[in-house]
Nucleic acid binder design. Structure first.
Lengths: 135, 135
DNA sequence: GTAGATGCAAAGTATTTGCGACAAG
DNA sequence: CTTGTCGCAAATACTTTGCATCTAC
């Protein structure tokens, strides 16, 4: 098991409050990719006094601190997931909305190569595959 | 030179109006990837009576008809570009916002392979590279 | 002639922010 | 103590929509 979100906050100098601890806990326990509304719902069950403004402020802060990753999949709201060492991309089922995570080293290295070819150093990338389940 | 947007509308059964013709013309002449506001500005210079609601309605219609492609690059507004046969992905300069188009067949086929491996048929994908210019 | 398009302003979403009260370090 | 955070409600940004009118086919 790697560092918890709380530990990451400490090591990155992000002040911990009760609200942030609850949000961190909920994100850690989420295996899906909740949007802010959904996250707010889950957080509210633990502490109903936390406002949605705080949830917005916190996910933004965590994102800027490299603790959470924000995804804006096709035409839907922003969704978040915990960022761990293992980078991965997403395959989205366009029928069900299910999200599958995957890693493909070959694609990763080709991306770097493409950027280099155009005189750029690759800093970040986004790869989303949209598909339908084969019968 | 390939089909104009007007021709595409005709072949796809999209009714042509003066407003749509102006929007089509502006998009054809744009070599960048304008957002709705910018498109509205350009369109207004030709016909100042066209409303922004019509611009929104038209880009949506054109997108659904496969005439325009909508992109939602990191944290910015939706941007549009004309869709031609040649599919391509984007390399975005994170310093200047400049957008470079590229095609890499190898990555394309690997994407299909990844989807297949997970039991999916690839329907669509999004690949964005973010980089900084090398000195 | 009729179904669909337009302009306008009002209504929706998603997200951010000003401010006074409050809490972490 | 002091700086940053919180909750609240209002504000903002982007996009959609109801309705009366108009237009392409």
């Amino acid at each position: 098991m790697s560092e918890t979100i709380e530990q990451k906050c400490l090591s990155k100098g992000v002040k911990l409050t009760d609200q942030r601890r609850v949000i961190a806990q909920v994100m850690s326990e989420s295996t899906d990719h909740p949007d802010v509304d959904e996250l707010y719902n889950r957080v509210s069950k633990i502490d109903s006094k936390i406002s949605i403004a705080t949830v917005y402020r916190t996910v933004k802060l965590f994102e800027e601190s490299g603790i959470l990753a924000k995804h804006e999949f096709k035409g839907s709201k922003a969704r978040y997931e915990e960022l761990n060492e293992g980078h991965h991309d997403h395959l989205i089922d366009i029928k069900t909305g299910e999200i599958i995570e995957f890693v493909d080293e070959e694609i990763e290295s080709l991306q770097k190569k493409v950027a280099e070819k155009h005189g750029y150093t690759l800093v970040d990338h986004k790869l989303e595959l949209y598909g339908v389940k084969k019968k």
